[in-house]
Design a protein around this nucleic acid. Structure first.
Ligand SMILES: NC(=O)c1ccc[n+]([C@@H]2O[C@H](COP(=O)([O-])OP(=O)(O)OC[C@H]3O[C@@H](n4cnc5c(N)ncnc54)[C@H](O)[C@@H]3O)[C@@H](O)[C@H]2O)c1
Ligand SMILES: NC(=O)c1ccc[n+]([C@@H]2O[C@H](COP(=O)([O-])OP(=O)(O)OC[C@H]3O[C@@H](n4cnc5c(N)ncnc54)[C@H](O)[C@@H]3O)[C@@H](O)[C@H]2O)c1
Lengths: 203, 203
DNA sequence: CGCCTCTTGTTAAAAGTTTCACATAATTAG
DNA sequence: CTAATTATGTGAAACTTTTAACAAGAGGCG
């Protein structure tokens, strides 16, 4: 979130931000920001604030996103194609260099110049290309199978877009992207507001 | 997460789960689950566990997802179209009943039987249809504008897929879906593992 | 050059969350 | 019907995160 906000400050031409300004923009407490950053180092200048570009670089270095990561996508359907077509990923350090599917009608097809490869060839292909992160966009009941292929290829990080839990060795990291979590959260917030717990006016 | 896991238990035909089993599947502590559920009510049976279907219903009722929510999508691009084509949303209680875009070439186009409407007609259309939740899939620099239109239409919840913060009145709830957060998280985990903090073998 | 202002980095206190441990209730077996 | 077994719901303890408070460092101004 800090990187996202700092990059918009950078685009606006703001050279320096205080934890106070950054906090206001992110809807958090200024101490929070100073604590978070202190965990990785001393990036600010007392009495001045943080130099935007320097802070972006420092955070990115701390998170390991100061280099290009090679990614593979498994499941070239609706969502998979949207991701493949998205140039932003490469621009921001995540290059999707291979796409896999098990559907014979999809294998061989090209999506923005990338050939869809059979999932059975995932292991060799991923290893040859030096892929480190896998994106799963198969249907939920195929997510575990896709994950297994990725683990075989010695991939160490997975983003799972399918609404299904997967089990993995301890050294493989997974992030779940589930749109329903967010929809449920919004539904809950609206419902809470509208529920007639209704403190009467004046209370 | 609990709903997601419980629904897979349901599909497998498991009628009852213990907090212990549910915890193992979700990679959390059993007490955590009992505490979380206790916040909303007493849904289990002592000595037995939780009846899967009953628990799904109870959680959904607690979160306000025991009904259909009408949604609108703003920005019919790559990602927007993928979402519109996704049947699962309606099936799970979130019906996208309107799609808006500002591009004259897109207005009038149909995506799975839904006509793309001009963003300027958002307010009237959304009100007429009784829309409650908005999905923003415009480019990041247009996200605030899209949000403003949604607020005008008296929408109370927003899911923002654009990597940009937006400011809203206090009674409008927003959830940010940012794939980069997840990619950064995975990058960080892998980097940590590989960094030569290397406790020597035997330590 | 010293004083004043500003904002960081950090220590300590407050608040929140997770886990443990066990009393309580349901079910089954004897 | 009682005892043994099981797994929930919950109060208290352990732990984590967040916030507040302030000392320390940087820069500007008279
Ligand atoms: N489309 C969306 O907007 C959207 C939104 C939220 C979540 N999702 C989730 O993302 C996933 C993909 O959705 P979608 O709409 O793209 O579905 P889709 O059916 O369009 O695409 C799935 C693709 O995965 C391929 N596939 C199936 N099994 C495979 C396997 N074992 N190995 C490799 N490829 C395999 C299929 O051939 C197909 O091309 C689903 O789990 C869905 O729930 C999608
Ligand atoms: N495509 C992906 O896989 C992906 C992944 C992650 C994040 N995102 C984010 O999702 C958003 C959309 O991505 P995309 O790839 O679909 O982009 P896109 O350019 O394909 O689509 C954007 C659409 O928004 C419309 N639009 C622009 N301004 C508008 C406005 N003021 N009102 C209404 N409509 C407007 C455009 O006409 C276009 O149709 C972006 O913010 C992107 O960063 C996309």
């Amino acid at each position: 979130m800090y990187v996202q906000v700092l990059e918009s400050f950078k685009r606006e031409g703001t050279p320096v931000v205080s934890s106070e300004l950054l906090a206001r923009t992110c809807n958090v407490n200024p101490s929070q920001i100073r604590k978070d950053l202190a965990y990785f180092g001393e990036f600010g200048v007392r009495g001045v604030g943080y130099h935007v570009q320097d802070l972006i670089s420092a955070i990115k270095r701390s998170l390991g996103v100061d280099r290009m990561w090679k990614c593979a996508l498994v499941g070239v359907g609706n969502l998979g194609k949207a991701l493949l077509r998205h140039r932003e990923f490469k621009y921001r350090g995540f290059d999707i260099v291979a796409a896999f599917d098990c559907d014979p009608f999809k294998i061989g097809e090209e999506v923005i110049g990338l050939e869809v490869v059979c999932t059975r060839r995932l292991k060799e292909t991923a290893r040859d290309l030096g892929i480190e992160i896998g994106l799963i966009t198969t249907p939920p009941d195929r997510a575990q199978r896709a994950a297994n292929f990725l683990v075989e290829a010695e991939i160490k990080g997975i983003i799972n877009f399918a609404p299904a839990r997967i089990t993995l060795p301890a050294d493989v990291h997974v992030e779940y992207v589930d749109f329903f979590h967010h929809l449920y959260a919004v539904s809950f917030s609206i419902t809470l507001d509208q529920r007639p717990k209704a403190k009467a006016i004046g209370d």
